[in-house]
């Protein structure tokens, strides 16, 4: 077990090196000198040269890359090219909002999605089953930002139930969390349903029925226990979707999280900020996936880790 965990964590290292190297290389191939871009059209030649020296742009690309990675390994992600704030510090300032949004929407996906999926499976081809099917198709095709905008108009402006933008209280997070959850929620319901129906076909469930077990006991004690296994793994898969969706959702609801940091950095090509966000989020997603796999092995003893 410990060996497996260490192996998985070590596997994150080539991912980090690969992705940062890739971004560094294409950045150096792209036209336009960052120093000139930062200083604007009024800068003199001397100023540009000084800025290039300051940013270390005169070094060969590989030297710059290894200097950067040496910093990253010490937890130093450099400073922003434009506003000169510490990348890691700014990231840590903003991550609580993003984490809260992610946790809330994941909670919605799990707490609403799994029960709905179970009901859809138990009452197969019933009203709820068809409703979830239609909603699943709708929500997975809808752009999250559109859903967010429409929800904002309806619930905030017309009904006045929630504040439209900001991140001051928990109430500010309800609508964004629902928006972010909508796409994954639909998939979760369908997945739970399929998995439950799959287990329902097995011999031991028939045996339970044959010996006269009550239907609720069959569902809760027999089907649910095995049927929820694939559902646990799917939670890991949602994390990547939620990170991507959080960027758009935060932008719609003007939540000062990691997303607005990233969007502004992309617009002005503030490379240290972009790199920092990518590295930290990738590690985070990797660790969450590892935890989900470990959880899977704990609840299902048949799963052997590392094979």
């Amino acid at each position: 077990m410990v060996k497996y965990i260490i192996k998985r964590i070590l596997m994150l290292i080539p991912v980090i090196f690969g992705i940062t190297l890739f971004i560094y290389v294409i950045m150096s191939l792209a036209p336009g000198d960052p120093a000139t871009l930062i200083l604007g059209p009024d800068a003199t030649y001397e100023e540009i040269l000084a800025k290039r020296e300051e940013l270390g742009l005169n070094d060969p690309i590989l030297v710059r890359y290894f200097k950067y990675m040496a910093g990253v390994l010490h937890g130093d992600f450099g400073i922003s090219w434009y506003n000169e704030y510490d990348v890691m510090g700014e990231f840590l300032n903003r991550i609580p909002n993003t984490l809260l949004l992610g946790l809330l929407s994941n909670a919605i996906v799990i707490l609403v999605g799994i029960p709905l999926g179970i009901i859809a499976a138990v009452k197969q081809n019933g009203v709820i089953d068809y409703c979830t099917l239609v909603l699943a198709m709708l929500f997975s095709s809808m752009p999250a930002f559109w859903f967010g905008l429409m929800a904002q108009i309806f619930f905030c402006l017309n009904l006045g139930w929630f504040p439209a933008t900001g991140a001051e209280s928990l109430k500010h997070f309800i609508l964004p969390a629902v928006t972010l959850a909508s796409a994954s929620l639909a998939g979760q319901v369908r997945l739970t349903r399929t998995s439950m129906l799959e287990v329902n076909k097995l011999d031991y469930v028939r045996t339970a029925r044959a010996k006269g077990c009550s239907e609720s006991r069959i569902v809760i004690r027999h089907v649910l226990r095995n049927g929820l296994l694939p559902v646990v793994t799917s939670i890991g898969a949602h994390i990547a979707t939620i990170v991507g969706g959080a960027i758009v959702t935060e932008s719609v609801f003007a939540i000062p999280g990691v997303a607005s940091l990233m969007i502004n950095a992309v617009k002005i090509r503030d490379v240290p900020v972009v790199m920092g966000v990518i590295v930290v989020i990738s590690v985070f997603v990797g660790v969450v996936n590892l935890l989900v796999d470990l959880l899977y092995a704990v609840i299902d003893p048949r799963v052997k880790l590392g094979s």
Partner: peptide
Amino acid sequence: ICDVFMAVPRMLLSMAVVAALG
């Protein structure tokens, strides 16, 4: 190589490439 690209959420990866390319 594919694993490296798949480890980063797609939306973030494409944003980072846009930042690098302009």
